[in-house]
């Protein structure tokens, strides 16, 4: 039930590192953090690093779907890095994989 959120703000870009469990208990916090970044002016790119995420359920997938829609509306780009095989499988099954930019390797 532990959650880790680390955000770094660059000039026109935000980087978020998520870790731990993203489930029904921690999802509201993740959603709040990501939404507050997406809705900020002057930001056109958001990167989320999921390497340290140990568990994500469908509530977590829902957050990414919500963020994806918000980014499309606001004309921002959204990128997800370093998905674990389990999370990648969830992204693929739900179809989310085809709608956001995914980078498997290092985020740098």
């Amino acid at each position: 039930m532990d959650l880790l959120i680390k955000t770094t703000s660059l000039e026109t870009e935000h980087r978020v590192v998520l870790g731990g469990d993203i489930d029904a208990f921690t999802a509201p916090k993740v959603k709040e953090t990501l939404m507050s970044l997406v809705t900020k002016p002057d930001i056109n790119h958001i990167t989320v690093d999921l390497e340290a995420v140990e568990y994500m359920d469908s509530t977590g997938i829902g957050i990414f779907i919500g963020i994806m829609k918000e980014c499309i509306q606001r004309n921002r780009t959204f990128e997800v890095h370093k998905l674990s095989p389990r999370v990648e499988r969830l992204f693929r099954i739900t179809g989310l994989y085809d709608h956001i930019a995914i980078r498997k390797g290092e985020s740098e």
């Binding site: 779907i65 693929r92 099954i93 739900t94 179809g95 989310l96 085809d98 709608h99």
Partner: peptide, 8 residues
């Protein structure tokens, strides 16, 4: 395969 309902 196909998108989940409500996704797009």
């Amino acid at each position: 395969r196909g998108n989940a309902l409500g996704l797009h």
